[in-house]
């Protein structure tokens, strides 16, 4: 069979996307934070913030990562950026494994991935001008000539919709949305392929959220950027993402392309999340799906399926055996025994 298939598939179909290596490939990523106790700082246990997370993002694609507070979304972002060291797993940028690279060896790869943070107030140094902030990555990566750097900074300002006159202003002179634009400009400075956006609009007013999201989508089209877009606001994620992964207690419980996930959620947790999204029409009757209880502690996650403590459908098996992610339909992965 393989030989005939090969013979028939000499040329890939025209419509298929270029099957290039994904921009980023994460496999089996884990981050356990040790819990130190007592006078001798013994390790008493671990917070399993991220527990066996795998995903890949293609060029020009946005992967939305959703889940409630404390489920490990931000830890995924920080570990991926190598801002904190992964406990296990591998991170590949353009096919190159950067998981264990030292600081110096990592530096050239940093150009490929940049991060935008949630809080546009603490992510800009109050004592530097906007221009210096945006120009700093250029300086670090060898664009030391100040004239050339200034030109590039002005270009970046224009791309993110800031005025060139604002280059010498300080962060406190900008609004929240403008500050987030500065953060985006800083992230774009090195022309990265991947931008990790850790709740980039959660701290902004709703009207400003739309502007920033649209800016990010425009930039993606122009530059073929890949995004890992982290949020807890499902409407925002639905708007910007191509594929969506749902996290619960440090694990991905479901992941599929956007349309499938939002119309045909398989995991009970995803169902509950979607049911909680407000619909701006009071006449539409909605299925009420309130989850009882709180997220269990990641220090001591429940055995079996970590969601069974709150799952309305949980069975005996769920309390014992951990469900693995499996493909229930092409491209649709769910970690649930029942679906």
């Amino acid at each position: 069979m393989p030989s005939t298939a090969n013979a028939l598939n000499l040329r890939p179909p025209e419509s298929a996307p270029a099957a290039a290596a994904p921009v980023v490939e994460v496999a089996g990523l884990r981050k356990y934070f040790p819990l130190k106790k007592g006078l001798l700082r013994r390790t008493a246990g671990y917070v399993r913030a991220v527990d066996d997370v795998s995903f890949a993002i293609a060029r020009g694609e946005t992967l939305g990562l959703v889940g409630e507070s404390g489920c490990g979304k931000s830890t995924v972002a920080r570990t991926l950026m190598r801002l904190i060291e992964p406990t296990a797993g591998s991170i590949k940028i353009n096919g190159q494994d950067v998981t264990r690279l030292g600081k110096r060896a990592l530096r050239p790869h940093r150009r490929q991935m940049q991060i935008i943070f949630q809080d546009p107030f603490s992510s800009l140094n109050p004592r530097m001008t906007a221009g210096d902030i945006v120009g700093e990555p250029l300086k670090i990566h060898g664009l030391t000539q100040s004239r050339a750097r200034h030109e590039r900074v002005a270009e970046l300002f224009e791309q993110v919709g800031l005025r060139a006159q604002q280059i010498n202003s300080f962060p406190h002179q900008f609004s929240g949305g403008q500050r987030q634009r500065i953060c985006i400009a800083r992230a774009l400075a090195l022309s990265p392929q991947l931008i990790v956006a850790d709740e980039p609009v959660s701290a902004l007013d709703v009207s400003i959220q739309a502007q920033v999201i649209n800016l990010m989508m425009d930039l993606q089209r122009q530059k073929q950027l890949s995004y890992l877009f982290i949020a807890h606001d499902l409407a925002v994620v639905e708007h910007i993402s191509h594929r969506v992964a749902v996290m619960y207690l440090g694990r991905i419980v479901e992941y599929a392309d956007k349309a499938t996930l939002f119309t045909d959620p398989r995991h009970p947790y995803t169902e509950a999340l979607l049911a909680a999204v407000p619909v701006p029409n009071p006449r539409i009757a909605r299925k009420k799906l309130l989850l009882p209880g709180d997220v269990p502690s990641p220090v001591n996650p429940p055995p079996g399926c970590s969601f069974h403590t709150r799952c309305p459908y949980a069975e005996a098996r769920c309390r014992i055996e951990r469900p693995l992610l499996r493909e229930v339909a092409p491209g649709h992965h769910v970690a649930c025994h029942l679906r």
């Binding site: 920080r78 950026m81 801002l83 990592l106 530096r107 940093r110 150009r111 940049q114 991060i115 943070f117 949630q118 809080d119 603490s122 992510s123 800009l124 140094n125 700093e136 990555p137 670090i140 990566h141 953060c183 800083r186 400075a189 090195l190």
Partner: peptide
């Protein structure tokens, strides 16, 4: 976060 951002740019 600006310290983390600085780390992220290398």
């Amino acid at each position: 976060q600006f310290v983390e951002a600085a780390r992220a740019i290398g």
